[in-house]
């Protein structure tokens, strides 16, 4: 479904990603793990069209994304819950959610079904639907970020560090939902520092270190891998 071929992304002189090749198949959940600064967020932003690609290409459903702006990529079905959640602070929960429907919504078309689905997944959002984004707790903001990404009716969901800054119990709750979304048949690429959580939902995973993919394999294989165990699982 998604393929990055020999992708290099640089900010001026600083090369953030070097020759990254990865693939996400239909209905798969793929994790991209790595330490802070490894280039994980850079990769997701490149896929969403926020970062210019220096060389290599990103292919979605067989077509290159090179010429497409971020709005077209969302319309193709690539939706992202970004790092740090980036909830619109001055918009209500419902406005945050409704905003993400612009790519498919036609004039006066109802979004009630999509809203109901988001509220089913995250009942807490329903209680807070009239509250402004800034007033939500970190966990609620993360749920809103994921719910908002789903409102775009994606075919590929990109999640950037959904556990960031959350208490362990909340992080697990968020991942519970991620698993639920994956089970519903959506393709997911999740970027995560918390390797245990990421490998608990992923079918396959890639390990990114200073802009290069250093390891890849099925989640089960990586859990057994000595290098992963020492560097990322701490045992």
């Amino acid at each position: 479904m998604l393929a990055c071929n020999d992708l290099t992304v640089a900010y001026g002189e600083i090369v953030a990603l070097q020759g990254v090749t990865l693939e996400v198949g239909r209905d798969e959940t793929v994790a991209l793990i790595g330490a802070n600064g490894a280039g994980k967020t850079t990769l997701l932003q490149a896929i969403s069209g926020l970062n210019p690609v220096r060389s290599g290409e990103i292919v979605f459903e067989g077509a290159s994304l090179a010429q497409l702006g971020s709005d077209h990529r969302v319309a193709l079905g690539i939706s992202q819950a970004p790092e740090g959640r980036r909830i619109f602070p001055g918009l209500t929960v419902e406005e945050n959610l409704s905003l993400a429907t612009v790519n498919w919504r036609r004039w006066r078309q109802s979004i009630a079904d999509d809203l109901a689905r988001a509220f089913d997944l995250f009942p807490r959002l329903k209680e807070r639907r009239r509250q402004l984004g800034w007033s939500l707790s970190g966990g609620e903001q993360q749920m809103l970020a994921i719910g908002r990404a789903l409102m775009a009716r994606p075919r590929l969901l990109l999640l950037d560090e959904p556990s960031l800054g959350l208490a362990p119990r909340l992080a697990e709750e968020v991942y519970e939902r991620v698993r639920q979304i994956a089970d519903s048949g959506l393709t997911i690429l999740v970027v995560e520092q918390n390797t245990v959580l990421a490998l608990s939902v992923a079918d396959r995973a890639y390990v990114l270190e200073t802009g290069r993919i250093v390891l890849q394999g099925t989640a089960d294989d990586l859990k057994q891998n000595t290098r992963v165990r020492e560097a990322y699982l701490g045992r």
Binding site: S48, G49, L50, S70, D71, R73, V74, A75, S79, Q80, P82, R86, I87, F88, L99, A100, V102, N103, R148, A152
Partner: peptide, 9 residues
């Protein structure tokens, strides 16, 4: 930036 990610023009 978030507006771009939501697909807004």
């Amino acid at each position: 930036k978030a507006a771009r990610l939501m697909g807004l023009k």
